[in-house]
Amino acid sequence: MFEQEIRRKAKELLEVKAVDLVIGYTSGSLPFQARPTLVSSPEDTEQLVWNHFCSPNLARYLLPYRDSSKKIALLAKGCDARAVVVLLREEQFPRERIHIIGLPCPGIISKRKLEEKLGEIKEEDFSWEESGFLCQGKKWEIDSFLEDTCVRCRYPNPPLWDDLIGEKRESRGSSVDYLERISSQSEEERWQFFTQELSRCIRCYACRNACPLCYCKECFAESDVPRWISGVPTLSDNSFFHLGRSIHLAGRCVECGACERACPEEIKIGLLPLKVEEIIKNSFSFEAGLSLEEEAPLLTYKENDPGEFIK
């Protein structure tokens, strides 16, 4: 696999001091999990892993280094690299400080979907192959186990990279899109659905903190002056938080789904920012994180923008 190559690259970069740190994944503290790791010496690069469970968006981990002068390499799947592009465009980092090790992404597997289909699972029963895995004496395609955002992913290849490890991949962009499923329902059904989802929210803010693009020093959700919402996870305040967050991500969300995967209550919370991206794509022909020259869609306008809704 590409794991060896990733380790070699990371080692090389650290040895020649091209970078001070490498941000990557290492094995998790639970089965079927990979967790972010920070490597600063060439010897430690052996702990790096690359598999179907490398789920957190590593661009999030750049943010603490915003005010340092360290040069950082990070492993980047398609969506991680898109988030880096947005961060660069928003001038959070100078381009020279970031070294992107691009990884064309085979998709992240949802542990929940594995459990749903295969029952109780143990790591040692799995044997991984190029496009699937063997388990319980059967060969399985990974497609039906992918995270929802990965099923609809149109950009598995990093749009920006300094090194690319692995073959470029076809975009999946499946037609059975879960956004569409919801859009086809009636207004009342949709509200019922979101009420169910949003009322489960405990407002732990894991979704916000896992998002590489929610980097405000003070989020409106916790601001004291003015106080927009209370700390009690009621339906109204939960809705306010998620609506507000999605609006703040308009034209910035890179559809990585990190927010949704972070949610301990398994709320389909990524749907909101994703929907906003769809609106922006359909109406303003814009997708975030594809090029450094792009102009943020809400920081610009056209004279013929949609305006029928205004009297």
Binding site: R35, L38, A206
Partner: peptide
Amino acid sequence: NELSWRCLNCGACTFL
């Protein structure tokens, strides 16, 4: 430093 590095201060752990 090492232990806390990957924590995002989300608070999910404390709420649950």
